[in-house]
Design a protein around this nucleic acid. Sequence first.
RNA 1: GGGGUGUUAGCUCAGUUGGUUCAGAGCGCGUGCUUGACAGGCACGAGGUCACUGGUUCGAUUCCAGUACAUCCCA
Length: 884
Amino acid sequence: MSEINIPSKYDPAQVEDKWYSFWMEQNFFRSTPDDREPYCIVIPPPNVTGMLHMGHMLNNTLQDVLIRRARMQGKNALWVPGTDHASIATEARVVNKLSEQGIKKTDLTREEFMTHAWEWKEKHGGIILEQLKKLGASCDWERTRFTMDQALSESVIKVFVDLFKKGKIYRGVRMVNWDPQALTAVSDEEVNHREVKSKLYYLKYQVEGADEFITIATTRPETILGDTAVCVHPEDERFSKFHGKRVLVPLINRSIPIIVDDYVDREFGTGALKITPAHDINDYELGLKHNLESIDIFNDNGTLNESAQVLVGEDRFKARELIVPELEKAGNLVKTEDYLNKVGYSERTNAVIEPKLSLQWFLKMKELSGPALEHVMNDTVHLQPSKFKNTYRHWMENVKDWCISRQLWWGQRIPAYFYGDGPNDYVVAESAEEALVLAQEKTGKKALTVADLNQDEDVLDTWFSSWLWPISVFDGIRYPQNEDINYYYPTNDLVTAPDILFFWVARMIIAGYEYRDEKPFNSVYLTGMVRDSKRRKMSKSLGNSPDPIELMKKYSADGVRVGMLLCAPAGNDLLFDEGLTEQGRNFSNKIWNAFRLIMSWEVDLKIEQPDHSARAGDWFEAKLNRAFKKVEDQFKKYRISDALMIVYKLFWDEFSSWYLETIKPAYEAPIDGITYQRTIGFIDQLLHMLHPFMPFITEEIWQLITERKTGESLMVSPMPAPENYNKKLIGQFEDLKEVVTNVRSIRKDKNIPPKELLELMIRTSENDNYQESLEPVIKKLANLSEVTQVSEDPGDSISFIVKNVEYFVPVGDMVNREEELVKLQSELEYTEGFLKSVQKKLSNERFVQNAPAQVVEKERQKMGDAEVKIGVLEAQIEKLRAQA
RNA sequence: GGGGUGUUAGCUCAGUUGGUUCAGAGCGCGUGCUUGACAGGCACGAGGUCACUGGUUCGAUUCCAGUACAUCCCA
């Protein structure tokens, strides 16, 4: 071994590239169906033109950990990568890019625009996948999919047509967020709500045929022109006399009814509410409920139209300015107040969003979501952590129809073909040719041609393609019985953020049951959101998101992976701090140095194995197996963070600080063969355990630690299974550690240098837990010249008690009796208090009767131990006093 | 406005099927170390009436209710 030149400094940049290329060359990431058990994850497809951010880092590190572990456990592991066309975000980027070149979207035909968009996608698409490779992601890159690939788009259209035929898809009017500047509807996610200082205007409406008035409060006085009712609370006595009457809209004197509904907040404003169904979502709902007319007073660009009757052609904000003096002049303005309200702004243009009614396509969700609700509630699909089940249930029980149309071009165009102007003059088909046949049948007009058909201008919501992802990546919509889908579906785990639990996860479950009659995955691991150390979301505009690529350059991919995982318990937000990746890097360093230490030893087969090495080896073997077991348990519970922490502590504390320190030969002295071989075996197992978390450094060391055949790799080497271990030995060693720590502590108190040998005396009794066989280890670690057993307190020594065994370190005249007394007294006090509470418990009949026998027995044991300890402490105190 | 989740050491989080040898981890902090693998380190140590108020109980940080605060989703 010693011939190999091991650099004293680990060089991650060079090592990481080397092994990633090696794994790719060896085709280790590739998976095809065979007779092994499959383990499959489909990636949550990132935006095709997106860049890697910290959320991706967390998410994909977790997926890679799961995939690598499954692969080492002998499963046929497949991680399917891919990207999402993200219609809104990508189209916005393309539009921006074009406008920089002086091209307006409105000047282009749909075909021309799409050409530009595809060019953009080819140029920028997939950068993010290249970035994932730096992280070590072991995806089967040959299976990379894109939601607008031919096969996936066809699947989307097929599903649309199918759902339409099943009567699940319909067209309807709904309120959308209209951006009057961009002249398009935007999704809820693209609306930013901000608090704005505005005014609340109190306006009085004359009651028809009476000299009475009813006063309402509004922040948008210009919309009164579209009012179709005034609403009051049915139990509000102030207004009961108005029930059934009508009022006149100020300025235009249109007669509208006064209606009652308990939706009205009696405390707000005057308690009377104006209803404008065309321009407010709540008013719209009320309008539907009470059969009110909708009067849309705005043009698409935000100016008032003919329906407004006055101020026609003025912009909505100008109209607001102008209408106030008019109302004042007409005597309708009662007063104005300052008011803070929330206004929606378009993320893209920053224009104030106008709620607007428009004709959209919907998917009926009630029936479809039934199985998806049921199978999450009964844990057929596990949510991790399960606290999300409540949120999920609430959403699914109150599910609303899904608006699946978007007024965009980048995406799958809705396959509805219009042959006339009537609301039902259309057919839905997978192609124009099929549509023609249907249209001819429906109209009876054989003369119709494809040219007479106009395809719907809208595209489908991106989620309408991503909800098929676990099926469509295997082409299971078009070919439901193909080998891949039959083998890999349902997939095993899905790793994603909770904010898309409904947008994406729930809908995939729905699609799974609808199209495969089977869940899409067994478990959903919901990660937290990555935030900065001040709990703010990572965002470009705040500039608080570090560049993951730079981070990996600085701290290594392994370091960043560890940093992310250490603080990422499922479902909890992760407060990212560069210090965490530093901790990850430091851990790499620790591993590297432990490896260097072992490699530096010269083996001498002639020397016998020292007792302390043999004992430490037995102990660490037990420790290792226990850790394997614990790690397995944590993985079962999806506690990846805790699993890593177990390995982290095993390596750093147990292996490095205790085991290696015990077996370490003196400077330049050789090591015996047995200990050396055993240690190599340990490190081999540790590397297996660590590999899913830190794939690069573990591969590097594994390749160096002993000779390997060409093409051998840790990443495909079987993960050892946990074996039974000696629990008792682990407990005894814990006592030993306490003894060693006590001795070291005495050294520190008394300023005794670590190199100076000390003596240790032990007073044992018949029934104690003292383990003589571990003496050689204590001797080595505490740097003792001698360990002797005594029957009496030797005096002039500092004593301590571990598990009812008394230990004495003779320090001659360095004993400070006062200090010792104080220490012993306080320990005695605590133990007496403890004993008292145990006795109290045991003398309580109800406790003894009701508590399980085990618990009572344990309490008795505690009482006995405490009594013994008190006896020892009292004797020591007495002795000290006598000496004083 | 409706719903969900949470409030345990300076920070980020575990945990307790209700009982003082389990209130714990990592980081951070303090003290001392050029201890021949590692200062990106080693050793030792300090830190918490487990948000608040009531209730159930022999006993509550753990169960229940309310309050406050935080946070997420929907509107």
